[in-house]
Design a protein around this nucleic acid. Sequence first.
RNA 1: CGGGGCGUAGCUCAGCCUGGCUAGAGCACCCGCUUUGGGAGCGGGAGGCCGCGGGUUCGAAUCCCGCCGCCCCGACCA
Length: 586
Amino acid sequence: MIRLSQLFLTTLRDDPVEAEAASHRLLLRAGYIRRAGAGLFAWLPLGLRVRRRIEEVIRQEMTAAGAQEVLFPGLLPREPYERSGRWKAYGDGIFRLQDRKGADHLLAPTHEEVFTLLVQDVVSSYKQLPVTIYQVQDKYRDETRPRAGLLRAREFTMKDAYSFDVTDEGLAASYQAQRDAYERIFQRLGLEYVIVTADNGLMGGAKSEEFLHPTAVGEDAFVQSAGGYAANVEAFTTLAPPAIPFGDAAEAVVRDTPATPTIDTLVAHANEHVARDEPWTAADTLKNVVLALTHDDGTRELVVVGIPGDRDVDEKRAEVAFAPADVGQATEADLAANPGLVKGYIGPWSAAGPVLGEQSTTGIRYLLDPRVVEGTTWLTGANEEGRHVFGLVAGRDFVGDGTIDVASVRAGDPAPDGSGPVTIERGMEIGHVFQLGRFFAETLGLQVLDESGRLQTVTMGSYGIGVTRNLAAIVEAHHDDKGIVWPREIAPFDVHVVATGRDEAVFALAEQLVADIEATGLEVLFDDRPKVSPGVKFRDAELIGVPRVVVVGRGATEGLGELWDRATGERAEVRLDEVVARLQQG
RNA sequence: CGGGGCGUAGCUCAGCCUGGCUAGAGCACCCGCUUUGGGAGCGGGAGGCCGCGGGUUCGAAUCCCGCCGCCCCGACCA
């Protein structure tokens, strides 16, 4: 039993200004965490208890899935990350430091390298595989902008597991075991989730899925179809329509379109001056966006991306599509250096002939949206100030240097697997399972002998759950205007007993009740504070969010108390000698 | 890293524009009395490098310069 009169805790009556997100605000106010720096938090007793309960759920399911717990330091030497290339790839995203001898170290953002080396150290035969090992460890990332408290912190706790197999089939099975464990974990944590196809990101690899918790405060956008398709928008692939025969299509015509440097102005001009059965729309236009790529070796390259005019380049999708190069906007200077491209009127073709694509006169790569298939007809820039070309046919008048899938995704777009139109929602990444394949094993030299005595490169998976982020996600999902409403599985206590009034006999009865409840194995937070008014105690109980509250006060000497359900708000008068039984019933 | 905002007591904020007594309020905290079923009342008290450094001035929380930190939006990331 923990007595509130003794607990290292102070609740705040006012919302801290710095906290916007509900989880951040409530965890601060209810005294679970305190800010220690930007994106850095101290854990108070209440917060630690919840953290440990979440970790316990995770540990149980990891054990059930056959994974074994180990623990690495958070501080690691540079060398393994140098070998994998991530020392460089992470750029400013990690904390780097030097020891007194000047040797580079880092605060680990994730531990693939050292787990790989540990297995290399311990394992030499296929007989010792497969194995899945995990840890619950703090990770460090030098976020440019930590936000929303625990949702994006610079130090956060993560359960990261790594599987090691000899065969692809083995990896698939290890992956599935973790994926199944994740489903059980999130069910137990009371977190709704959607499993979406993810981008493979920094680590390469074959297959990757994210567990996204749908919420408005989520930083990811994902799509879903009624037919079961689900993907992060970064991983969404656009379905290309079939090609259209263009044998009888009319010749392209260049027209004067003064003062039409944007899609909106162009469409308005076309509708005013160029008759057609259907009104012109942005979807009839081909928008050509100049992007500046920065490659790994530091070289800069301009590319032009052609997408339907009713869409934008989605920067996140572009980063993925052009990875590992960084994507930026082209500057005025870039355009000035390429007089063939006229800002506001860029297109693959001009009256003088092709400008971009296969017969390019600019030397700039021209990549097309998958929807720009052969035979489609477009209204697009003619590379002259105030002129556009109407009826330009893909495959006849211009051919791109390839396709690129970077256009924004919209609700209603068809899922690539044919399962129907998609909807778009926001979600928070609460878990990530990933078939890494052999990248790390290859670069770090992890091989084992197979049955025939030959060396085989091991294939790996990595599986992460952000413990502290999940804690915040749970608060986001389980709170009301009065405070937190913890799911029972991870609440800091099972029961919150509130003694009210100033009658010592009442407090003695409450004390006895607490002992009786604890005898059944339930953990109790006991508000035994003397001289604190009932209103304050009730408010604190609601703020702290223990699922069930027992009030011992008015009526206690007649053997009556109250049992409150924090989640439903139900309040029932119960006989004190029946409280234990009622709590056990659930 | 771009845009916006803010640094005054544990929390929320006033004071700054227009420089001037000992720097304020509410909440929280301590003592006493009263009160005890929804953030109680009265009285007393403790608590401040007014973010840091420099400058202007007889005098700076207030004006000027520089720096640092934090929050929010965006970009980047679990």
